[in-house]
Amino acid sequence: MLRLDGLVKEFGAKRAVDSVSMIVPPGQFVGVIGQSGAGKSTLLRAINRLSDPTQGSIWCNDTDVMALKGRGLRQWRARCAMIFQQFNLAGRLDVLTNVLMGRAFHAPVWRSVAKLWTAEEKAMGLSALESLDIARLAGQRADTLSGGQQQRVAIARALIQEPEIILADEPVASLDPRNTRVVMDALLHINKHFGITVMCNLHSLDLARKYCDRLVGLAGGQLVFDGVPAALTDHVARDLYGLEASDVVDADQRPVLVLGGAQGLAVANP
């Protein structure tokens, strides 16, 4: 069980995350929604401690995450895998090496540095890749793959961490609709079959409603909505995305995602 208590992250004078408290029971698929700049990414990065929160506490079962450092911190990162919008793979390395980075915490450093993976590790990596249908690409350089394939490599990397939590930061924002489905289905499968908690930042409310057990809405860094997808009425969504939503549509012709409902409320897709 993951518990956030009064989490604050400041960048200079700006509060990107403003006293967020929540409890995430194991096995939940949580969607984090809100405008861009609402603090969604910052929240996820703070949980993995890629960037340290300014105040507040994070507890996972009996672990005080904020107190961790050194090896303990790296162990925590191994327990909560991250998936990024831009995949964050090492482009010039082959796919399997990228995936095996997921064992970085478990394997001794000298062995990793020399790329001396054991047969079990390789088997693990290939199995993870095969479960996402891309094991045949194992020897290719990561930057020769399409965006959807790269994101699947990143998921395989997360899988072989054998994590308790997967934090997915806009995993489908750079992907086309078909790959969006492949990636979201994969996350859902991992969540439902293996009981791994998933916290996923999403832009599209349609996706959020379709995949998540629970939605958390952020606005200006504050938690303004927390409930099941059904509770997210168009009225609430309009509050969440602010009045600009309709303005943005009028102001320019950027592609927009139409929000469900006859009102035609729309959200700009930056």
């Binding site: 194991p26 096995g27 082959d94 399997l96 047969a119 390789k122 088997a123 693990m124 290939l126 199995s127 993870a128 095969e130 479960s131 094991a135 045949r136 194992a138 020897g139 290719q140 899988l159 072989i160 054998e162 308790e164 991992i190 079959h193 293996f194 009981g195 791994i196």
Partner: peptide
Amino acid sequence: MSSPIVQLPEAQLRPLLAGYNATVRSRR
């Protein structure tokens, strides 16, 4: 919670591993 890695059967794994090793070896 179980491990999310379902180990492939040996018969399926071997050709994949061989293919990967061959690519890596030529690069090395």
